[in-house]
């Protein structure tokens, strides 16, 4: 006679939340992109190493064509205690990816009693992008995220930055990475400061790193209408999160106000 708790199905990989979703027929389904409306998109995000770890920043604007949808989007998302995802692209897809990854990482940690390794977390995002390939190829739901994660296999634990193309290719950034429509300006500024800055971004302490991040975001907004920028006079700031060996810390708007002055 069968027991009410059936033997657990043999998963392809232990602790794989996506396998659990598929088993319950709850996996997100890619839809038909024909006749899609104008997409809402989110830009601009970037990350760079500073003296204390990695700073991940994002403006807060979402646009649809030439329409500003909102200036209050959170594009830097905590996936778990040691992982940050910064999204550029279509929020509808990116937020769902973030939600699935967040649940997936926590599910693995709780069920397997150990956190997912950094390479596995990096590949999980790559797989999520690859699963979105059909929509990406149709030009709908394109996402090009950044990922910052803590490598706990190093001693002491070391924060690392990764960037992706919309097809899921993953690349490790040495000093910085940027994505979104304002990324060109951001990359130019970061490259300039990395080569000629005194001190370079990697040697900045947190207040200076925050000031630097806000300033380059302001410059990017000068050249890209889809980048929200920063306006201290109207209390409009960026989303800034810091990943250090001891975890994630958000930089509050009051700290941004204080340090940009």
């Amino acid at each position: 006679m069968p027991r009410p708790f059936p033997p657990p199905p043999v998963p392809t990989v232990a602790g794989d939340f996506f396998a659990l979703l598929a088993q319950h027929q709850l996996a997100p389904v890619a839809g038909d992109a024909a006749n899609a409306p104008v997409q809402t998109t989110a830009t601009t995000v970037f990350a760079f190493h500073f003296a204390g770890g990695v700073l991940v920043a994002g403006d807060r604007r979402a646009t649809a064509g030439n329409v500003i949808v909102t200036d209050r989007v959170e594009k830097v998302i905590e996936l778990d205690a040691t992982s940050l995802l910064a999204i550029a692209g279509v929020p509808a897809t990116a937020f769902e990816m973030a939600r699935a990854l967040r649940t997936s990482f926590e599910y693995y940690r709780r069920s397997q009693l150990q956190p997912l390794s950094l390479p596995a977390r990096v590949r999980a995002l790559s797989r999520a992008l690859r699963d979105n390939l059909a929509l990406t190829l149709q030009g709908v739901g394109v996402v090009a995220p950044l990922f910052a994660g803590l490598d706990t296999s190093a001693s002491p634990a070391r924060p690392e930055i990764f960037f992706y193309d919309p097809l899921g290719a993953q690349f490790q950034a040495v000093g910085y990475a940027a994505s979104g429509s304002g990324a060109g300006t951001i990359r130019s500024l970061l490259s300039y400061h990395e080569r000629f800055g005194s001190p370079p971004p990697a040697q900045l302490e947190l207040p200076e790193a925050v000031r630097f991040a806000l300033r380059i975001l302001m410059v990017a907004a000068e050249f890209d209408s889809a980048t929200g920028g920063v306006a201290p006079e109207s209390a409009r700031f960026a989303t800034l999160k810091v990943l250090t060996a001891s975890g994630i810390q958000s930089v509050s708007e009051s700290d941004q106000q204080r340090w940009i002055a």
Binding site: L20, L21, L26, R99, T103, R110, S111
Partner: peptide, 17 residues
């Protein structure tokens, strides 16, 4: 362990959906 896995599965499915 079986009960633990069962309740973790149920909680995460509920939390995700």
């Amino acid at each position: 362990e079986r009960i633990r896995q069962s309740i973790i599965d149920a909680a995460h499915l509920e939390g995700f959906t």
